[in-house]
Design a protein around this nucleic acid. Structure first.
Length: 430
DNA sequence: CGCCTTGTACCTAGGTACAAGGCGGTGCCCTAGT
């Protein structure tokens, strides 16, 4: 006997006794045909929010995902729950892409994973009128805001696409400030949405910033941190070159260290990911290319050679620590010239207006306001990072404040409240 | 912002020294021509 009752589905198909906070609200919204925004913390069970409606509803659930590797993860998990799930992406042979498209049009697919670019591609166009989409899910929805303007403009077009598909939208993310949440809703054209925003605070994470003046001193500080920390360890650096340098420096000091960035061949990237997932006590140095879809529970230390370009990015990267709930340390090194590279990236992706002619052109086309606003918003993100690095008060309060969460009193979990020896001691040493 | 590469001056032949300028981070997509 089949049932469309969410709780029965949860128990029978997934083996969980009850929904966790937020899941029920998001599932019910999907079943009622309402738009919904879910900000659920890492490990908060986001996939269930659309897998359960996918089973309960007739028709197709389309899940938009930013990375092919994430599609692979979602595909595996959905199939484990007995869902007829498929993906269409450039990694598949053309014949297989066509076959999946035909199956979806014939109603033989329950869950379809695609990149946003795919939804806009001419090759996908003929398929759209044939699909009976009952739910459109935007996974990692913060990408709409952080990438949509420049890096992956397809994210800006999702509002148009959702109307063509004629389905309610469920936007899911683990990291979104109030501003980003508003932008997601605006771009997707939400009306009377259901919203669920979980707490960003993770008590087991310890936060600290350490001074380091030169690259050589940074290497020494990194080594001191990394060689004693138990569990899996991760170092983030701002450039590929710096990643290689750090790897070499750790290796010279006798630590097995693997490097990861987007300039490495596919096979090498896969190998390093597997090393990080499987080795007893791995150490990986990476750019921000590393992490999405990486899900190791016992990461005890995440060190940033330099802080990220925004607190959203920093929280996403550092937040890969301590998923098992045990104490874990998130340290950022700080020195002269920090943030320069992010300002340089910003000048490329959101350039300042360079000439009177350009100013007039933008004003005439009506794009002046949004152009100024976007650059201004990016600069505000950089200033927030500086505030986090330089605060004399509680770091946790600065971090949570950025995500719109208030908090008072000392936290006992950052170097300002507890002192550096205190937070360092909390994760123990090998 | 800081780095690395490239170019020029130096003056008589291949190095040295320094200035100028470009570049740095994320990933989908699959055209047209080997």
């Amino acid at each position: 006997m089949t049932t469309s009752d969410p709780l029965h589905i949860l128990r029978d198909r997934f083996g969980f006794p009850a929904f966790r906070t937020g899941q029920r609200e998001l599932v019910d919204a999907a079943l009622a045909g309402r738009d919904a925004l879910g900000v659920l913390p890492t490990g908060g069970g986001k996939s269930l929010c659309f897998q359960v409606p996918c089973i309960a509803l007739p028709g197709l659930t389309v899940v938009v995902s930013p990375l092919i590797s994430l599609m692979a993860d979602q595909l595996r998990r959905a199939r484990e729950a007995g869902i007829q799930a498929q993906a269409i992406h450039s990694g598949l042979p053309p014949a297989q892409r066509d076959q999946v498209g035909r199956a979806a049009a014939a109603g033989e697919v329950e869950l379809l994973l695609v990149a946003p670019e795919r939804l806009l591609a001419p090759s996908f166009e003929p398929l759209i009128p044939l699909l009976h989409v009952s739910l459109l899910v935007i996974d990692e929805a913060h990408c709409i805001s952080c990438w949509g303007h420049d890096f992956r403009p397809a994210y800006r077009e999702l509002g148009r696409i959702r109307h063509r598909l004629g389905a309610p939208v469920q936007a899911l993310t683990a990291t979104a400030t109030p501003k980003v949440r508003a932008e997601i809703e605006e771009i997707l054209g939400f009306r009377r949405p259901v919203r669920f925003v979980g707490s960003f605070d993770r008590e087991n994470l310890l936060w600290a910033v350490r001074p380091a003046r030169s690259p050589a001193e940074r290497n020494q500080v990194l080594y001191d941190l990394v060689h004693r920390a138990p569990g899996a360890r991760l170092i983030y650096a701002a450039t590929r070159k710096r990643v290689e340098r750090i790897r070499a420096s750790m290796a010279r000091r006798g630590l097995r260290t693997e490097a990861y960035h987007a300039g490495l061949p596919e096979g090498e990237r896969t190998r390093v990911q597997a090393f990080f997932m499987e080795a007893r006590r791995p150490l990986v140095v990476a750019t921000n290319a590393f992490g999405m879809g990486i899900d190791r529970a016992d990461v005890r230390l995440v060190v940033h050679d330099q802080l990220s370009g925004s607190l959203e990015d920093y929280y996403q990267e550092a937040g890969r620590a301590g998923r098992d709930g045990e104490a874990a340390l998130c340290v950022a090194l700080r020195g002269p010239g920090d943030g320069g590279i992010h300002r340089a990236f910003l000048d490329r992706t959101h350039p300042p207006i360079r000439s009177p002619g350009e100013l007039v052109r933008l004003w005439r086309s009506g794009d002046l306001g949004s152009r100024l606003e976007r650059r201004h918003a990016q600069l505000a993100k950089l200033r927030a990072v500086d505030r986090y690095a330089g605060t004399k008060g509680c770091r946790r309060r600065v971090l949570l404040g950025w995500f719109g969460e208030r908090r008072s009193g000392p936290c006992e979990g950052c170097d300002r409240c507890r002192g550096w020896p205190g937070v360092l001691g909390a994760i123990g040493s090998r």
